[in-house]
Amino acid sequence: MSENNELPAVRAENSLRLDLVTAFRRNRMATAGLAIVSLLVVGAVLAPWLSPYDPYAIDLSNKTLAPSASHWLGTDELGRDLLTRLIYGARISLMIGIVPALIAQIVGTSVGVVSGYCGGALDYLLMRIADVVLAFPSQLLALAIMYTLSGSLMNLFIALSVLGWAQTARVVRSLTLSLRGREFVLAARSIGVRNSVIMLRHILPNCIPTIIVLLTMRIPNYILQEASLSFLGIGAQPPTPSWGLIATKGKEYLFSAPWIGIAPGIFILVTVLGFNFMGDAVRDALDPTLKD
């Protein structure tokens, strides 16, 4: 019997890696997504070596040049090479996609597991706070936070982390509730395992596939949110080479230099598509119930 009770946690860990590998092998789109994202990571890391230009150096004699051999995507309104700025922008988009998403996931998971496992007044309080956060249209709450903190990339990190935890907490809590009554948890409790150990060693590993799925859905979402907020002028501030911010300038030069507005959008679209391709495959492999 005791061996049986060990099974779920052990199997979850082994099959997780297996599921992910087969998902990527079977799904061509997932492979394409992985390729796009890898390319982006390489570009972001090697940015200074990939381009001969400085993303910040202003050169007014070369402003709004059309795409050419020396400036593949042309130059912006201050004479900076657009492609260079977009490559540096990949650093920002990747960071904004991954760091706040991870923070939101960690906070949400902790709240969800504790809330679901401990129950009682603590559970009630935490879930009412989550309800309040979830009641907001996310963009509006982001506006409120950015108003208070004022626009900057760092503050955007904070705003997006604050927004995301509630959904994860809700999902993880309901998972924890169903796991709490299972035999392996009862067995652990009956031999006197401490609650903190049960939460960490028995409940948490079983939530991991779902947490990964939520994470993969959140990353592209955050990249889009950063771009939109920066586009509106309440995210990253000049001269940060954020894709959304570059597109804002493009709006002003739509008639004379349309490439400034159009090129950053293509970078965003391809990046988000890449993450979505991977996310779809991961979700199908790990937790098809979370579909839409």
């Binding site: 771009a227 597109a247 950053p264 959008g265 679209l269």
Partner: peptide
């Protein structure tokens, strides 16, 4: 999937450029 992945402001800029400019 492209529709979900596309930033709305960019779709707006592209449509403005094509149909307006």
């Amino acid at each position: 999937l492209t529709g979900i992945s596309m930033p709305a402001f960019w779709a707006a800029l592209v449509l403005q450029y094509i149909f307006g400019v």
